[in-house]
Each structure stands twice: as structure tokens, then as C-alpha cells.
Write a protein that binds this DNA or RNA. Structure first.
Lengths: 166, 166
DNA sequence: TACTAAAAAATCGTGAACGATTTAAATGGA
DNA sequence: TCCATTTAAATCGTTCACGATTTTTTAGTA
């Protein structure tokens, strides 16, 4: 531990003591990739009048509706503090309806409107256009997606197991 | 195309016409994974008085400083509209200094303070703690990181090639 | 030198994102 | 039946993120 030279690989025993460089952090790779995806989607979604999180929300709703805010939150990994204002904006743009569940007045049911369902057609072009932006071939994409899914499952477990530490 | 049954695999020719489900979107896997990472870091960073983007910024500055706002933006993939207020908050917390470059008064040089450099010690524990949260083994992590890096390079090219379409 | 163009950061407005709290409704005993 | 507990969504305050614009400084050129 006397040499202090900077090499481009981790030069500490086994993930000990030293802090990896920014570019060596998996979290930063995920952060960058996600941000780039969002930026690539933006110009494609703009003609549809959707932001990227709104697009994900519509994808969830096209798949299955009506759903409560909570169910939607589970599907998207977001809480009501994020979803409520987002859904109000979608409602304001005429793409979804929000109504209290008569059977349980605590719940709010969200559903695409006619216009919201119609938007699905335009989304096909978005989906198709995005397929062109990847440098990875089909097998690599599948493999990456599979690995990410495993990572996500692990991270979910970790975050459920240790919500915080005091 | 007369059967309208929903199956849990893609039931269209070859990525044509149909919109994949939310969970089949790579962008959503990246979005979820990145969000989960941020949430896992939060309780670890809170004692250090850092948010996650602030932590990434400090990682960049610990690696090399002083840097201009623009250089930092290139490293982090953020623009001055995001970085300026973030850096002002770091400055307000005594972790970095911001000063105009005497040689070019347009530039602002950012540098960790003594306190900002000292924080690096506390960050070692954060870095170590995060290593425990992954369900992937060392080789898988390396491979995932490598694939993500290639994806990021491709997405950067794509976003440079087609900033928008009108 | 004067004047336009380019570059760097800051500013503004909008929309996520989330912790913490609040409000309202349903649930589960005693 | 009554009341404490739980649950669901909404609200509030702070921070991130970015497109578009503005301000200031430098560079380039006639």
C-alpha cells in the first residue's frame, strides 16, 4: 500500500479502503444510461405531449386498467407523492380519468380515456424508433435485460431488508 | 392477427407493430435500477450530508480538481442549469469553493475545500456498504458494467447524431 | 479598433422524485 | 357501538433535471 500510482483498474486488495473512480461505479453507469434513455425519448414523446415518466405510466395503464394509484406505484416503483401530481397532469391533458373507488373510498382508480387509448397508436412509432438506438445486438440486449432484472430483484430485497440504519 | 389473447411473451413478428410491456422495456429496467440505487444510497449518504447527485459530484472532484462547471458537466452528463444550483448548495455546506478563472472570466473553477476532502474518508464506508447490496457476483458485475458502458457509448452517439427531428 | 459571433455560466419555468406529514376512510377489537 | 389502528391518497418542502433564455466575457474579423 505504499505505491500511490493511479492505474485504470482497481488497485486495492479486494474492494477495500479505496473509493473507485466515478466511471467504475455501477450506480453511475445505471444513472448515465437511464438519463441518456430519457433524453433520447424526449424528442420522440414531445409530439405526443408526454414526458418520459408519463409515457411509462401510460405503458402501465395500456397494459391493465383501471388501477389504483398504489398499484400503479408498485408497477412503476413510485409513491403517491410522485404519482398524484403526474396523474393530475395526465388528467388535465385528457389522457386519463381519476375517480374514487365506490367500494373503498380511500382508493383512486386511474384509467385511460378514449384519447389516452388512441395515443397508443402513436406510441408504436416511438417504440420502433427507439429500437434503432442501441449498439447491442438482440442477444446482448436480452442478456443485459435479464441481468438487470436480477440486479433489480436483489436491490429490492436489500432495500426491503434495510430501510435504514439507526 | 385475429386472436387477441394476451400472452406473457412478445406475440408479434419481430419487434413490429406491438408495444412491448412495461417490464420488457430496457429503458424501464435502467430507470428502475437507477432509482433503486439512489434509494439505497440515500440513508448511507444522509449522515455525510450529501444527496446522491452531490455524492457523484464529489466523486468527480475527489478524482480531479479544480474543474470548470462545464468539465464537471461533461464528466457527470449534466448541464449548467443542473450543476450551478447543486454546486451552490455544496458551497453553502462548505464542501467546495467556486471562483472565476482569472485567465478566463467566463469560467468558474470548482474545488473541494479541506472539509470536502476530509469527507472522502466517510465515503469509503459508503462505498464498502454498497458492495454488499448486489446479488451478482464479481464477474457478472464486471460484465454488466462493461455492457452498460458499450450501451452508454452507443446512446451518446445516437443522441449526438439525432439531437431532434423536425 | 470596432463590431459581430461564439462560448460559459447563470437564471427561469416546468416537471419529476421523495421524506415527512396530513386527511379521510376502512378495519378490528373491547 | 365506539374508538384506536391501519391503509390510501394527497400535500408540503427540498432537490434534481432540462429546455430556453439571458448575461458576461472572449475570440474573430473587417
Amino acid at each position: 500500500m505504499t505505491t500511490k500510482q493511479t492505474s485504470d483498474v482497481i488497485d486495492v486488495p479486494a474492494g477495500f479502503a479505496g473509493i473507485p473512480k466515478l466511471d467504475q461505479h455501477l450506480c453511475f453507469a445505471l444513472y448515465s444510461a437511464s438519463g441518456l434513455m430519457t433524453r433520447l425519448y424526449r424528442p420522440l414523446l414531445e409530439p405526443l405531449g408526454l414526458t418520459y415518466p408519463q409515457y411509462l405510466t401510460m405503458l402501465a395503464l395500456w397494459e391493465h386498467a383501471p388501477r389504483t394509484v398504489g398499484e400503479l406505484g408498485d408497477a412503476l416503483g413510485l409513491d403517491s407523492a410522485t404519482l398524484t401530481p403526474l396523474l393530475k397532469r395526465l388528467e388535465g391533458n385528457g389522457l386519463v380519468t381519476r375517480r374514487r373507488d365506490a367500494a373503498d373510498e380511500r382508493r383512486v382508480l386511474v384509467e385511460p380515456t378514449q384519447q389516452g387509448r388512441a395515443l397508443r397508436e402513436g406510441a408504436k412509432a416511438v417504440s420502433a424508433a427507439m429500437r434503432c438506438h442501441s449498439p447491442l445486438d438482440g442477444d446482448e440486449l436480452k442478456s443485459l435485460h435479464h441481468t438487470l432484472t436480477r440486479l433489480i430483484d436483489g436491490l429490492r430485497e436489500a432495500s426491503a431488508a434495510a430501510p435504514d440504519r439507526d
